[in-house]
Design a protein around this nucleic acid. Sequence first.
DNA 1: GTCCGTGTAGTTAGCGCTAACATTGCCGAC
DNA 2: GTCGGCAATGTTAGCGCTAACTACACGGAC
Lengths: 355, 355
Amino acid sequence: MVEAGQTRKRKRRTQSAPTVADVARLAGVSPMTVSRVINRETAVMDATRDKVREAIRALDYVPNSAARSLAGGRQSRIALLHSNPSASYLSEFLVGTLQEAGASDAQLVVEHCAAPESAEALAARLDAHRVDAVLLPPPLCDDPALLAVLQARGLPMVQIATGRAVDFAHAVTIDDERAAYAMTRHLIDRGHERIAFITGDTNQTVSSLRLEGYRRALREAGRALAPDLVVEGDFTYRSGLAAAETLLALALPPTAIFASNDDMAAAASAVAHRHGLDVPRQVTIVGYDDTPIATTVWPELTTIRQPIQDMARRGTQLLIAAIEAKRLGRAASVHHECLDFELVLRESDGDRPHD
Amino acid sequence: MVEAGQTRKRKRRTQSAPTVADVARLAGVSPMTVSRVINRETAVMDATRDKVREAIRALDYVPNSAARSLAGGRQSRIALLHSNPSASYLSEFLVGTLQEAGASDAQLVVEHCAAPESAEALAARLDAHRVDAVLLPPPLCDDPALLAVLQARGLPMVQIATGRAVDFAHAVTIDDERAAYAMTRHLIDRGHERIAFITGDTNQTVSSLRLEGYRRALREAGRALAPDLVVEGDFTYRSGLAAAETLLALALPPTAIFASNDDMAAAASAVAHRHGLDVPRQVTIVGYDDTPIATTVWPELTTIRQPIQDMARRGTQLLIAAIEAKRLGRAASVHHECLDFELVLRESDGDRPHD
DNA sequence: GTCCGTGTAGTTAGCGCTAACATTGCCGAC
DNA sequence: GTCGGCAATGTTAGCGCTAACTACACGGAC
């Protein structure tokens, strides 16, 4: 049997999706030009660029990301460190991060940080994974030991939703003080006189910002700050239960309760019902964060929505840019960004009841 | 000018992490042998393997995943399709999937399925992303149109926690009937006579399985099935509120309420409190799923834990295997696996109250 | 001994892309 | 003109790894 002559060996390449070479052939240019078009480089004539774009569309070409990161010498691995048990926060966060990471074909590694672990041990785990940068959602974003260790390793990092942005890390936040101010202002505008506040865990930096926003709104409205209307909570449902009991047992109970998160607001709502009070007809209850529990309980909670996905996306972008800058030896300038919150009006707030 | 001979050009390679070549040099073998050790191939002598392992450890070598998937011609992209608004489910799921995908350097794309979108439109989106296989958490895993379209495209897929596994898809489930049976059995063992059941959304396949488990337990215990003790819900908090009101308004109210998910159990708990009933002293309330709300509300709910992360991990494994099999032209056998659930005892269940 | 089979290793040639350099053509400056 | 400079494109050589082949040693069958 004689060989067919042609296809003597041609190794591998059985599957075949279109490659740059295919596109180049169809467009009548070199593969390099195709690459330039894909990477939006400038030195390509408009006519050429259009031809290539056309060919890409015709072949339904999608670049091979493995080849890109191999050839380009850039493959970034971003770690998402979390200790936060709030699953809803995490999933929003993950979705945002994955979108952005997918677009820049960066790899994401999710690492859970148990409390007792030393920051050094954690950093060692990151090294083992060859991590290039780190995403820090709350409350980890405020852990000084962790921040220090990461800084010492020269890893770019971004604090998400921190109340205390450090100067060596990127940060993407919302303005918690202003958000709490806006919510309190909203309650004032609905006619409420006695507005109570349930604080968050005093160890988290955002807690004091939220309290401060509440205070400023009252101050600016010329209201007295009744100390008995500010009760300490720690972000748990249970603490919300206790705080609401305290508030509703007052001789002159509040007509509105602003809880520093939705879990505590949900608890307050449960306590109000237990006291035979209708929400919002007899007492207004509002929360913060817009976690799933806000729409689970009835009545659904009026609350502050943080753009978690957007924050995650933006944080990831910053990290990818930082990795690139570092690779090029450029000094990375640190960005602190503040995104907009949203006041979400649902069913749990109403006008001040007529006495 | 004569060339210096040696370092004439040597392009690129500035960064340098250790490569197979470095390991090979140190171990005194060829790069191919190193590759064999990494990929656990058999044709390597133990002595050689140990040398290579030693060198890997010494250099702290980590294979370059981009190069691996490029050279190996295998790069899998797995889509996670979700319509489920339950963020907590999603985040557990994502963490499990990411772990497994990271280990096999598969890429994960998360696609949200809005309800009105046609299955075809969705499949087109998958094509655009060059997706190789699809993960289907509930309730999408039971969408016949979607399943059909994916099957037509020949995409491997896995139904997670479905109540109705189809024969052309992999499936990873828990035994909902048996779990509901176990929970009901537990309530019987605590002495309860009048055990109520709040059903889930009747459109989801798991709902009837859970009801069936409840029924079987009562039957086997020789109890009558009181029809007034089974109330329809639809998995929402609000439906749980209504169902619990109905149940507690009965002339002979139940001493235990088994809700088909935690949201409804939390609602039932709120209603019980509103009725001045202590949980669990006067009425026992148990849920299902072990979502975060189970540990948020007080008292914390006794519930059934599904191993969501494990299911996601296993499902991902099955898909990666299926993609590999397909690539090799082997017919993929379909796997249906059933993982263990766990009965999580917390604070919301107690013995039958003494009349 | 020759032969073949088998188990262990090494060689070669890409996977699909892009960095770095090379080339071409065109324009204005001298 | 011719030369430098620039802008648009092409060429070459890998990125780090592994598929597919080759090479060789050993060992038993004939």
